[in-house]
């Protein structure tokens, strides 16, 4: 434990007690172990450029995107092959979402939003493979995604609209007395956006995977009756497939909503 530089030295005692309590019960379930970032080729500490399991699965997500959208469409067929029609479906899906939610003038940001959608969708889906690692369950990863959207949208709002962007917080349709209160609420909710945006994604993926792991632990402990948790795992797995897609969709559509606020700040 000492060789790992955790940076949280204060809580080691409580943690150790916690693990001791877990070890004391009959179940040997460690649902959080699957989220550990560890080096692939060495045992040392994780430095900035170390190739880790996170790196591997990020690279696989990039590879998946490349296979679907670049290799899959290389035929440029007017009558599409199966892979090409899936790629076109994804393109049309995000394109329509941007156009419907954020407006026609948001289409110049379409490649960025498409990047976000495909990255999240592919990481979520690949993370459902057994023995895989899910980058989107890491708060560091989703925070980068969420805060980059937040900063980009805020900067864009001020660049395009100048001080009129502050009208987003000054609800002109409300009675004058309520406006300062509403402004405070709007301001708080505006700054909570990136937090909820990133925590929602990480929390959903983390929760789903942890639940799967807990049920897998039950299956290991129950012996003959392990078919019950295995059935439950099957059901939860199907739900997680849905969640993996829906979270990518929700992340993207919220990005579009925030973008719309930046482009047209009037309420």
């Amino acid at each position: 434990m000492a060789d790992k530089a955790t940076g949280e030295g204060a809580s080691h005692a409580a943690e150790a007690a916690g693990h001791a309590a877990e070890g004391g019960s009959g179940l040997n379930i460690h649902p959080m172990d699957q989220f550990v970032v560890e080096p692939l080729f060495s045992d040392g500490p994780v430095h900035m450029f170390t190739v880790t399991n996170s790196t591997l699965w990020l690279a696989l997500a990039v590879l998946g995107v490349a296979l679907l959208l670049v290799v899959g469409t290389r035929g440029r067929a007017v009558v599409p092959s199966r892979v090409q029609s899936v790629a076109e479906l994804a393109y049309g899906f995000v394109h329509k979402m941007v156009e419907d939610v954020a407006g026609k003038d948001a289409l110049k940001f379409f490649p960025y939003i498409m990047t976000l959608f495909l990255f999240i969708a592919f990481s979520n889906m690949l993370a459902l493979l057994p023995m895989s690692f899910s980058p989107t369950s890491q708060i560091a990863v989703t925070a980068v995604l969420g805060f980059s959207v937040f900063i980009a949208v805020t900067v864009l709002g001020f660049v395009l609209n100048g001080s009129k962007f502050l009208g987003l917080f000054w609800v002109s349709s409300a009675p004058l007395v309520l406006r300062p209160i509403l402004a405070v609420i709007e301001l708080i909710s505006y700054f909570v956006r990136p937090v909820s945006h990133s925590v929602r994604l990480a929390g959903n993926i983390m929760a789903g995977h942890a639940v799967l792991k807990v049920f897998a632990g039950f299956a290991g402990a129950l012996g003959l009756f392990s078919f019950i948790p295995i059935l439950a795992i099957t059901g939860i797995y199907a739900l997680e497939l849905l969640v993996a897609f829906i979270q990518a969709y929700v992340f993207t559509i919220l990005t579009c909503v925030y973008l719309k606020d930046a482009l047209h700040p009037s309420h």
Binding site: E15, G18, D100, V199, M206, A207, V250, L254, V257
Partner: peptide, 27 residues
């Protein structure tokens, strides 16, 4: 789209509570 946005906002707060539980348990 509005439906999903609404669900996402409602669910985010549930995820916050889940996060609080996890933090209490492990962190």
């Amino acid at each position: 789209a509005t439906l999903f946005i609404g669900i996402a906002f409602a669910e985010a707060l549930g995820i916050f509570s889940f996060l609080v539980a996890l933090l209490l348990m492990f962190a």
